[in-house]
Nucleic acid binder design. Structure first.
Lengths: 354, 354
DNA sequence: ATTAGCACTCTCGTTTGATGAGTGCTAACA
DNA sequence: TGTTAGCACTCATCAAACGAGAGTGCTAAT
């Protein structure tokens, strides 16, 4: 059942060629371009076998062969070699990422922009996954007599806030007190906990003004917590995919766009607790069966985990892209390490494949 | 030079028909569908005149006529009548908007979603324009020994924050002191002022720890201020345009998408200080010469001004869409009025056309 | 001023045929 | 027994040809 050396060579050649040219590849062109020392006829026979085993497909009777998801999987797992980044790409990553090293969100957004620029694919990036994040403190800040800001900060430093407008004025005292009470009640609890559990009802309901304020604030508090789970997803370069031959059909392009607009789907994808570069090809994916999703993890002080990824057709340069993403995430993790610390808590160059 | 009554009727008929069917409209179909009491031949003559005057165009010799930008302009200014919203649309707006009446940003985002759902076009919405907004206070909040949150709040209640990571630890005292000093220095000044003016250098540079902290914080402060100008732009429903016949060509679709991705362009557009519903048709627009942009203004306590808009091909149902937007913005302004106040500071149903 | 009539133009969908790439099979070959 | 040459066959793609239909523009009659 294992593939012969020659079959592997042929498969590799077909993948390389197809990834390059986006057109079904025939036996003759393989024989000419890649020096396998056999005739087209032999290659045809092998291709026929490969097709039977599910590595190749046939768009129609007399077209060349196209690699299947299974072929790409084999390629990613066993065949492909790590690529060295071009000097230009390396420079780009080093320069552009270091420019704003001290700011979290901005850096992540830049990383996504960078990634889509280099790979010419659509990319996205997520600040540290937060459903297990714990709440650090809650603040209510005054704007005017009826308007206030609700601010939630997690231990990891993630911030979310909403502006609320109340129907009745509030007092500064009530605000301070409620801030304090809420912080005491929720500090150290995870977002999941708070969202799934019941609302704590005894948050200082003894004072009247406070209880009224509390009633106005709590619904927003819950909604804002929900926001924390998906608000920090940046998406970039979606128009890149228009340049790919697989999306010249308007229907395909529309499908892609509609999926890309579904932030929640990506958030879902991102919550998986894996490490390193992960490639999910075509059918392995539930939705978007003709796309490949590649994600990579970066680390903050070796602890917290955020993700960055690209999405495109299954036909993509797996070797280059995974190498780029590895380099990029290592670079990110490096930036986010405490200056003093030496521990490399998983920020290294391990790579895990599905 | 004025158009005759009959010419106006014909022009109106052509516009109505073309907006509906997206196909060049011929003399015969006009004569049949709209009861003008004249023969196709007469209509042909009039159409020829209208074309000479620049109200109609000819895709090619033997196709029907298509309205020009000039025709739409005439239609919008003089011909179209206000439309009554369907009960369904009204209900949708009332229901969906009131659900989150107390939260600013969320409401605006919902309004954009709603608008694109009802109009089947791409929409966007902007929270109050802020380059003339004044700073209310600045806070620095601790996360861990090297991480802190920088938060800027404007008088109007707009909030922006960034998480900073410093290379050296800071003290709580320094943080509090710097918060206070910065607030004192910048309170009441407009964003424009601060961004254009020089940085105030004498913010308590007498204490050493403080001055170090200040050095780390100030660059981010400036960048964060810049963020305040354009961060709150929501865009929705861009995939709607794929369903329109003018965007079945992949090139057109790409152009549209690329423009739509340029947030800065929209922000620019939105800063115009106009009121009510404003329609900008085709060439009147500098970029995107084949699109129409309709914006509408909403009010907060009759003072502050935010905008909401749709964008689509010049062929659109101007009467319906402007009516919807008027209704929607009135509704928004209503929600954002102080419960007690009666003054209607411009929140009424005035409408201004270009 | 309006209208009927008619020739003319141009697009669009369909058909047809040629072309070329590529396969699959068979028989010859090393 | 694995490899190769040869050849018939299959499809997709492209271009040319064609007819139908929609619509105009002009002229002459009303």
């Amino acid at each position: 059942m294992d593939l012969s050396e020659r079959q592997l060579q042929i498969l590799q050649a077909i993948i390389t060629d197809y990834v390059e040219n986006a057109e079904p590849v025939g036996s003759r062109s393989i024989a000419k371009k890649y020096d396998l020392g056999v005739s087209p006829a032999t290659i045809r026979n092998e291709m026929s076998d490969l097709e039977e085993m599910g590595y190749l497909t046939h768009p129609h009777t007399s077209a060349g062969r196209v690699p299947s998801d299974k072929a790409y999987r084999l390629y990613v797992n066993d065949l492909m070699k790590k690529k060295n980044l071009s000097a230009k790409d390396k420079r780009m990553i080093n320069d552009r990422l270091s420019a704003s090293r001290d700011e979290f969100d901005r850096t992540i957004r830049h990383a996504a922009e960078l990634l889509s620029e280099i790979t010419h694919l659509a990319s996205f990036a997520m600040t540290p996954a937060t459903n297990e994040e714990t709440i650090s403190f809650i603040r209510l800040l005054p704007v005017d007599e009826r308007t206030l800001i609700l601010m939630i900060v997690s231990e990891g430093g993630q911030v979310t806030n909403t502006t609320l407008r109340l129907t009745v004025p509030y007092t500064q005292e009530a605000l301070d007190l409620l801030s304090k009470n809420m912080t005491v009640s929720y500090k150290g609890r995870t977002l999941d906990d708070v969202l799934k559990g019941e609302i704590i009802h005894d948050v200082g309901s003894d004072i009247e003004a406070l209880s009224a304020l509390r009633g106005s604030v709590m619904p927003s508090f819950i909604r804002t917590l929900e926001d924390m789970l998906n608000v920090n997803l940046y998406m970039e370069g979606m128009t890149n995919i228009f340049n790919l031959p697989e999306y010249t059909s308007i229907d395909r392009a529309r499908d892609f766009m509609e999926l890309f607009a579904r932030k929640d789907w990506f958030t879902q994808k991102m919550l998986a607790r894996d490490d390193g570069v992960v490639v999910t090809i075509g059918e392995e994916n539930d939705t978007m069966k003709d796309c490949t999703l590649i994600t990579a993890t970066y680390h903050v002080d070796g602890k917290l985990v955020g993700k960055i990824g690209v999405i495109g057709p299954t036909r993509m340069k797996y070797d280059e892209i995974t190498s780029i993403m590895e380099y990029l995430t290592n670079n990110l993790s490096e930036s986010f390490r405490l200056p003093g610390s030496t521990g490399d808590g998983n920020a290294g160059d391990k790579e895990q494949k599905k």
